[in-house]
Design a protein around this nucleic acid. Structure first.
Lengths: 199, 199
DNA sequence: TCCCAATGTAATCATTGATTACTTTGCGTT
DNA sequence: AACGCAAAGTAATCAATGATTACATTGGGA
């Protein structure tokens, strides 16, 4: 209830845990993972440096909570994009990839945290949670003649790596963000024509 | 000359700068970028905490020197792989991609540092230093009928993104390192068949 | 030889994470 | 409605690190 950064009237904050995570998110967006620190989050919540300890045993726990929060946001973002893509599974797959890339463009620091080596949240990576399903889909499309032959696992991994690579290149500064989305669509088209069965 | 971690006989270390970078590399490999700290590097060199200041104005400078060192190593690694690939440009390109991935498997922390958003070393990224040349090569292969038609810039970016994505997936823990190289070869094959002109 | 610039030491300060004892609050129980 | 207790925050403290300054030592060149 009490506004962040304002002097608190009550002894108890009321929603310190949430406030800390929110403040940590601000710090992350502003300066990356290394800029996330407990004291500043506490300061912005108008609370003493020891207070966060009641909610998070250490900095890693705060980062974990932040990661979880961001994971949920990303999942919602991704699933929304899939829902908008209609019923065609291949269109859905493409939409998921583009959502991935768009999220990386819009929230690079969050993307970075979410996919860091240290992130162990199994649900954090929406793109990688339907592997078996996606591979089966690819195998079926191959049998039905829509996709050219080849090991479906490799085709799937290629699609993942391509998407992840584009997103990562943007986040890591190897691809200018301006126009990156349009470029990404071209790249996905090249790949799509590559894996499609020759007519 | 004096061994690291041993008590120094002389007042002057002799090669403190190099020793600090070496120690920083150890810290990086052991615990990632965040584990690199000036004091520990100084401690391991058997030198006081203030000594590094003579060589590096701050921690960022030490990290920059470390990055530069790693960049040179990676470049040599990559160029060696290309040299071994023979004269065929397409084979060279494939060899470069595989070298990229192999380096990521062998030295994930170094790869990570080298490709971090904060890395500004323009020569650090061997894969991305011959863009115009590679695009021209692709365009020529298309004209000569080896590759199917399509915007050569997009084909080139697709190849880059695929390679970078695989390497990054390994580094970020999204792909088990065991067997990753063989898997990567399969993926590059799928891509290669995709961009190759239909026979 | 001697001087001085380079290099390392010692001491110090600020920031941050972590931890403990103490204080305040407000809710559930009676 | 009063009480008591658990939850939540404060204050104080310690350790580790980065940064910075004044001082000491060394060795090579004028």
């Amino acid at each position: 209830m009490p506004a962040r950064r304002a002097k608190r009237k009550t002894y108890h904050h009321g929603a310190l845990r949430e406030a800390l995570v929110t403040n940590a998110l601000e710090l992350l967006d502003a300066g990356g993972r290394e800029a996330v620190n407990v004291r500043e989050a506490a300061r912005r919540a108008g609370v003493s440096p020891g207070a966060p300890f009641r909610h998070f045993p250490d900095r890693a726990a705060l980062l974990a909570a932040l990661t979880s929060e961001i994971g949920a946001e990303f999942r919602a973002f991704s699933e929304d994009a899939i829902a908008r893509a209609g019923a065609n599974p291949l269109r859905q797959f493409r939409a998921m990839g583009l959502a991935y890339i768009r999220y990386a463009i819009e929230h690079p620091r969050r993307f970075q945290l979410l996919h860091a080596e240290t992130c162990t949240d199994p649900h954090a990576l929406a793109l990688f949670t339907r592997d078996a399903e996606a591979v089966a889909l690819i195998a079926r499309a191959q049998r039905e003649g829509f996709l050219r032959a080849g090991p479906p696992e490799a085709v799937h991994l290629a699609a993942q790596a391509l998407t992840y690579g584009l997103a990562r290149m943007i986040v890591d500064g190897h691809l200018p963000r301006a126009g990156a989305e349009a470029l990404a669509e071209q790249v996905l088209d090249v790949f799509g024509r590559g894996v499609a069965a020759p007519r």
